[in-house]
C-alpha cells in the first residue's frame, strides 16, 4: 500500500510542474536546465515511491533511490555551472 505523504508529494510536484509551465509561458524560462532535469528525476522518484506500494516493491524502490542519486548529481552540476557562468561573465566584464 502507498503512504498518504507520498501521494501528497506527487500531487504537489505535479501542481508545481503546472505552475512552472504557466510561469515559463508568461515570463520565459530561466537558464537552469540541469536543475530542471534534476527536479524531473525527483519527480520520477516520487512516482516510483507511489508505484512501489502497488507492484514490484524492490525494483521501483531501487529506481526511486537511483533517481535521487542522479538528481543530486544534476543539482551539483547545475550549481557548479551557475558559478562558472558567473565567473566567465565577470571576466568578460573586466576585459
Amino acid at each position: 500500500m502507498f503512504q498518504e505523504n507520498e501521494v501528497l508529494n506527487l500531487i504537489l510536484a505535479l501542481i508545481s510542474i503546472l505552475m512552472f509551465a504557466f510561469i515559463f509561458k508568461k515570463m520565459g524560462p530561466p537558464r537552469l536546465r540541469l536543475l530542471y532535469i534534476g527536479f524531473i528525476f525527483i519527480l520520477c522518484g516520487y512516482l516510483f515511491t507511489v508505484i512501489e506500494g502497488v507492484i514490484w516493491l524492490e525494483f521501483f524502490n531501487l529506481l526511486e533511490h537511483l533517481c535521487y542519486a542522479i538528481s543530486g548529481i544534476l543539482f551539483a552540476a547545475g550549481c557548479l555551472s551557475i558559478i562558472r557562468h558567473s565567473t566567465s561573465e565577470q571576466a568578460k566584464n573586466n576585459v
Binding site: 524502490n61 543530486g72 550549481c79
Partner: peptide, 18 residues
Amino acid sequence: IVGLDLIATIAFGVALLF
C-alpha cells in the same frame, strides 16, 4: 540502496555548498 543514498547525500551536499 544505501550506496545510492550515499551518492545522493554527497551530491546534494556538494550542490548545497556550490
